[in-house]
């Protein structure tokens, strides 16, 4: 087969010195096979994502403009007002989701940075142990850890008792983040839970980017009479920017769609948009509204992420 494809008929044309020598057919075939290798490797994984991730999204988009009921079936009627109705009915939950997850993200950054910095520059031979301790909470299930916060923040817990004794809860109640002498079923509890649950997602990217910072740069800054704070502000922090961006996104995105914390630690007043989507889907069985709400959430997050990434100036996230 390979011999047959080689040109044999006619007088052999003078070889053009500029043109590359024609590849023997066998080599050509091997090259073609080589070119097919990445596609063959990709085939299964990409097909899986196309069928079970992309197709459902497209399907969801069509569901969001359908009308009907579970008994009669749903039909595409380009009923775009579902979006408006859904947003109109549930905008407070949207706002709460974004505010709670935004605050939790900022808190995670503030709380997580010192630990990431400690692991990267100060932990020495304890580094691996501390890293394990950061990842370790992951291994006790998310729900069980959130339930542990229910115990910690319960009305009769020592912590809440202590906070009441020092009258801190009076201050927070005046600010509107707790109610009376309780912590449970208040925005504070929800934000606490979110911050705790997503903290490792902040610490790990921060650590990875801080670890790459050359320690000698600190010495150099010190030699040039920079105070430790100036060194941090002008050298360390800017160099850790990729970690900051990755960490905030990895915290903010899952936190804004989360409803476990809001359901377990909050009351109906702290419901987040995830709860609404879930109950529309699983209990109300109003699939178009659930689909429209998912798309609004996705669009809002995408818009925020795009503005944020452009502002932060790092676009090499993938």
């Amino acid at each position: 087969m390979s011999a047959a494809t080689a040109p044999v008929a006619g007088p052999a044309p003078l070889p053009d010195p500029a043109a590359p020598a024609p590849l023997p057919a066998a080599l050509k075939k091997a090259a073609r096979r080589r070119r097919a290798v990445p596609y063959l490797l990709l085939l299964a994984g990409v097909a899986w994502l196309l069928v079970f991730f992309v197709a459902p999204m497209v399907y969801q988009a069509s569901t969001s403009v359908q009308t009907g009921s579970l008994d009669e079936g749903f039909k595409v009627t380009w009923h775009f007002s579902t979006y408006w109705d859904a947003f109109d009915a549930y905008w407070p939950q949207f706002v709460k989701s974004l505010v709670y997850s935004g605050i939790a993200t900022v808190l995670c950054l503030g709380i997580g940075y010192p630990l990431a910095y400690t692991i990267a520059f100060r932990a020495g031979r304890w580094r691996n142990l501390v890293l394990i301790l950061v990842i370790a909470p992951f291994f006790t299930s998310f729900l069980i850890r959130t339930l542990a916060w229910e115990t910690i923040l319960a009305d009769e817990s020592p912590l809440v008792h202590f906070l009441n004794t020092i009258h801190l809860l009076d201050v927070t109640s005046a600010l509107g983040i707790t109610e009376g002498d309780r912590v449970m079923a208040t925005p504070l509890a929800v934000v606490c839970g979110l911050t705790y649950n997503f903290l490792p997602f902040m610490i790990l990217p921060l650590y990875t980017s801080l670890e790459r910072v050359d320690g000698r740069l600190h010495e150099a800054a010190g030699d040039l009479y920079a105070t430790p704070f100036t060194t941090f502000r002008k050298v360390t922090f800017p160099l850790s920017m990729p970690g900051v961006v990755a960490g905030t996104l990895l915290t903010f995105i899952p936190a804004s769609g989360d409803y476990i914390n809001a359901e377990l630690l909050g009351s109906t007043n702290q419901k987040m948009i995830g709860s609404v989507i879930q109950s529309q889907f699983l209990r109300v069985l109003d699939y178009p509204t659930a689909a429209a709400l998912s798309f609004i959430l996705m669009a809002v997050i995408l818009a925020i992420v795009m503005v944020y990434v452009r502002r932060a100036g790092t676009e090499e996230l993938v």
Binding site: F52, F53, A55, P56, M57, Y59, Q60, T63, F74, L249, I253, P254, S256, G257, D258, Y259, I273, G274, I277, Q278, F281, Y287, A290, A291, S294, F295, L297, M298, I301, V305
Partner: peptide
């Protein structure tokens, strides 16, 4: 980069239909 609710709900809708 996708909230879990969104992925879960859309895959669920597909299976359902």
């Amino acid at each position: 980069a996708m909230p879990e609710v969104v992925m879960g709900a859309s895959l669920g809708t597909l299976f359902l239909n």
